[in-house]
Design a protein around this nucleic acid. Sequence first.
DNA 1: CTGCATCCTTCCTGATACTG
DNA 2: CAGTATCAGGAAGGATGCAG
Lengths: 146, 146
Amino acid sequence: MEEGTSKSPGHTPVTDPAYCQKWDPREDCEVRQILDRVADKWSLLVIALLDLRSLRFTELRREIDGISQRMLTVTLRQLERDGLVRRTVHPVVPPRVDYELTPLGATLHDTIEALVTWTEEHRQEIAAARDEYDRRAARTDELVDA
Amino acid sequence: MEEGTSKSPGHTPVTDPAYCQKWDPREDCEVRQILDRVADKWSLLVIALLDLRSLRFTELRREIDGISQRMLTVTLRQLERDGLVRRTVHPVVPPRVDYELTPLGATLHDTIEALVTWTEEHRQEIAAARDEYDRRAARTDELVDA
DNA sequence: CTGCATCCTTCCTGATACTG
DNA sequence: CAGTATCAGGAAGGATGCAG
């Protein structure tokens, strides 16, 4: 019936004022939707590259190792829709399309840059933590085998 | 001028010194691997919640609307492996497992917080951009229909 | 309560063909 | 060049059942 552990009285909800003011817990909340977009693997790279200079479709494709044509298209469309990237079609042959950050996109880059910087500053620590974790896991597996 | 059609001479590579110092273009580069982790949809939310206070598995599951049990487990294991989250098992019945940020994880939270703040500060602009984009798209579709 | 194992669905890549 | 459309194969994610 009722499990004493997750009952109301002793349970301090994280969804109290201090939390609710910052996070809407609903899955479809606006902030979560935007976070899913800007914290996206490919969006991050596209924005970082476009901050250096405006780029054409093929240039982006070439620079971002591992991205498929489909995902680059999808990512650029999303970023354009969100007003972070401007798409400019030049009426020439062969067609030329330039992508560049909007002022809004540029402000996002500052934040993304911080994330990249953090990653670069702490990658040694993370690599060490991974080694440590994997070594422990290996030892545990040995015990299980025995 | 010289279209260069992405040939060698006229093509200004983004992978020049200014770029290479910051980004390793290879897909499997360490920085990209870590970014994929910390810029992950669920990782972001987990770290944001654990910054408020340490939480149990079920508490996290309840707070993060839409996450599956599997993904919460996977996300926590990855964060633990990377040294961002500490997992503490209390030898009691029923089992009790607490998750908390490590000092390293706490430093990451500062950066994530900036991303969340950016999102909150600009969500109106993004919503407006989306409306604008969707209206244009709707009008274009009309023309196509006609 | 915690979380692994299994099945099943959805998404993504990669290749290829075609339009403007 | 800059896409859209399609299809096969694979990986990621969701739902469920069960074990410690």
